[in-house]
Design a protein around this nucleic acid. Sequence first.
DNA 1: CGGAGCTTTGATCTTCCTCAAAAACTGTGG
DNA 2: CCACAGTTTTTGAGGAAGATCAAAGCTCCG
Lengths: 252, 252
Amino acid sequence: MSANVADKTPVFDASPNAGESLARRHPCASCSVRDLSFCHCLDTEELDELESIVTHLEVPARAPIIDESEPAEFLFNVTGGAIKLYKLLADGRRQITGFLFAGDFLGIAMKENYVYSAEAVNKATLCRFRRGDLENMVDNNAKLSKEMLSMASNELEMAQEQMLLLGRKTAKEKLCSFLMTLSKRAQRRGEASSPIFVPMSRADIGDYLGLTTETVSRTFTNLKRDGVIRLQEGSMIHLNDMEELDDFAEGN
Amino acid sequence: MSANVADKTPVFDASPNAGESLARRHPCASCSVRDLSFCHCLDTEELDELESIVTHLEVPARAPIIDESEPAEFLFNVTGGAIKLYKLLADGRRQITGFLFAGDFLGIAMKENYVYSAEAVNKATLCRFRRGDLENMVDNNAKLSKEMLSMASNELEMAQEQMLLLGRKTAKEKLCSFLMTLSKRAQRRGEASSPIFVPMSRADIGDYLGLTTETVSRTFTNLKRDGVIRLQEGSMIHLNDMEELDDFAEGN
DNA sequence: CGGAGCTTTGATCTTCCTCAAAAACTGTGG
DNA sequence: CCACAGTTTTTGAGGAAGATCAAAGCTCCG
């Protein structure tokens, strides 16, 4: 039950390569997702400190990353791929509470033990920190502490939006909201807003939206039939009319 | 649309009485809910500072307190009564995202504009702060900043639990979870865990649990019939078997 | 090329919603 | 203290969205 990747030797670790190019010695400084990550607020010196406590990991699709109720030994920053966070009921019913992508932090609402589980959707890369190490750094760094509060605040806002979705939206509205959220996220990151990459399975989408796989599939079929979306190869989905989609998402 | 109590002259304001007893001059120091509130972490001097930016309000049942998408001018700390937070869809569907009680802080996930609305469930008392004032104080006070992060973290955990409830629990499980949550909260505050005070209407409970008023009522009736709960006068609900209730809540 | 795992589609069923009306409460004024 | 009007809660009947059960297509890899 504790055979987590978190426990294993990292597949990829930058530290053995230290002492060569600046990029090698300071991978954080040249990190491609730093401006999306909590560490964007740190200066060179602070990055050095961060680097001294980080381990870089690469995990395959479906790899478990943390398990609810296990001691919260590690926190993570996602640098590539997608991660799903979820909670389970005793009989196996699952609620995915969020998806994390490059730049997202994993471990904000953490006590002594993890309060949810996390698993890689596809191949993913992560920065791993010992909780104590990172907490220490946050305690002694006002910028970092402010950044954490800001992240928690954003997460909370997203969670409230998701509660509205789960409690009050129809299947169609849920799915349209989901697509719009992915699209807007891509846009914020400077990617195209329309063919969007949707790496998660129908089952994952269902467990995120409070629906079954079958209902997700049927609703996708309806949206295709009505010309709202077009499925493309490689898990890409083309959104034909963003404004229409947004209206559907908001129940108009 | 902006006829909020927040805009009006406070019904009750401690400042005019200043200059008399210590309790008057330092109401914060003698506040009965301080150890439940974010300000429990402040020393006497800091309390003075806090006091210089606070206004005390009393609002009647159903009074609107903040409105989603209005400029976020004020933040609040609840000192008495109950407050509901909610989001609306265009056609009036409502999702209550949380209830606040004495000691709870209102305004954690706040941007320039409010991201949800809030309204008093019953007569309530509040400490009101200008957002800028409080943010200033938080920025210059590590204890306060840490406290805010901790509160945000707790909120987030509760939100995730609520997502599990909304997405994956049955009506009976939802209602039992709701009662258990209220009971545990009361217990944490040193109150009895069993006859619990449930001031909100069936409609409010429904909008919190993603159900209709009728389903809430029917489910209450079933729980009464099965001897799980007993409704008492004054909105009190007696929980006959906490363990059984908890099992129902978790889907066992 | 083959097979395991997704996804889609179909048929049927269940839970919860909707609409409607009666019953119980709440507060107010006489 | 009681009567009454408005509101909230409860109960009932019927309906609909989405779940469940089942099976057929697809995909993607090895």
